[in-house]
Amino acid sequence: MANRKSSLAKSRSSRSVKQSEAQARKRRVRELLLENLEQRQLLAVGPQLIGIQPNTSDLLTDGSVQTVSPRELVFRFDDAQQIDPNTVAGIRITAAGGDGSFDRFSAESGFGSNGEASIQLTADVPGQGFTVNVSTGDLGAGAAPAISISGSTIAVTLNSNPTSPTTANQLVQAINGSPALLGKITAQLLGGDGNAPLGQRPANEYSPILLTSNNDRQIIPGAVLVGDAPDENEVRVRFAENLPD
């Protein structure tokens, strides 16, 4: 009987040791997996931009507007970084177009005014494009231009009535006041005579009008320099010529 008890105790002790060893191996595997995951996460995180310092003012903040164009911008990344000079081509500086905003598609047209007026159409939502089909028709004396929209296609019919053809100002007012185009596009008289009659040329000469590109332009710097020690986390961008204010 004593031998059987001793044998059972040894068996239980052996199983306990094996279970402990198995649990230890599992813990070690989990630790290795976590270490590898942390290393991959560290490798996946690139340089973190801390701030941008122009030579003309304090640090830039999101949405800030500068009234004086800088000659130089200093990009500062987190202290742990040593920027590779071969990667600085990834920094791109873009200037807004004439509409003063980024990524909003716009187009300019005289709407058949024989060069007497210029109207700019601008999409209200960045990245959203439209096709504007323009036609003419006698809508009656004093009638406003007809406007409708289907998806991303806008139809505009200019009044060709001899006594009251649609003028540039009337078209701008009609587009900006149209419930169908609310939040879609806006119109602006860029130049010329607001009273100039539109639709004086065949519509196929100025229609369709495509709002599928913007006026943003990329600025090519004169030099892009990585800082010397201990400022390897800085990238200095110098412009080759004065930027417009």
Rank of each mutant, 00 (worst) to 15 (best):
Q170K: 13
L171A: 10
L171S: 07
V172S: 08
Q173Y: 05
Q173I: 12
I175W: 02
N176R: 07
N176Q: 08
S178E: 06
S178H: 06
S178P: 07
S178W: 03
P179I: 01
A180V: 15
A180T: 10
L181N: 03
L182H: 00
L182E: 14
L182P: 01
L182W: 03
G183A: 11
K184G: 04
K184I: 10
T186S: 15
T186F: 11
A187K: 08
A187C: 03
Q188G: 08
Q188W: 10
L189S: 13
L189P: 02
L190N: 06
G191A: 14
G191Q: 13
G192H: 05
D193Q: 09
D193N: 15
G194K: 06
G194F: 04
G194H: 09
N195Q: 14
N195D: 13
N195A: 15
A196H: 06
A196W: 13
L198G: 05
L198N: 04
L198D: 08
Q200T: 09
P202E: 04
A203S: 12
A203V: 10
N204T: 11
E205M: 12
E205L: 15
E205D: 14
Y206I: 14
S207F: 02
P208C: 12
I209A: 01
I209G: 00
I209T: 02
L211H: 02
T212H: 07
T212S: 15
T212L: 05
S213A: 14
S213M: 09
N214T: 10
N214V: 02
N214P: 04
N214K: 05
N215F: 13
N215Y: 05
N215E: 07
N215Q: 10
N215P: 01
D216E: 04
D216C: 05
R217D: 07
R217S: 15
Q218A: 13
Q218F: 04
Q218K: 14
I219R: 00
I219F: 02
I220C: 00
I220G: 03
I220A: 06
I220F: 02
P221L: 01
P221R: 03
G222N: 08
V224G: 03
V224L: 12
V224Q: 00
L225V: 15
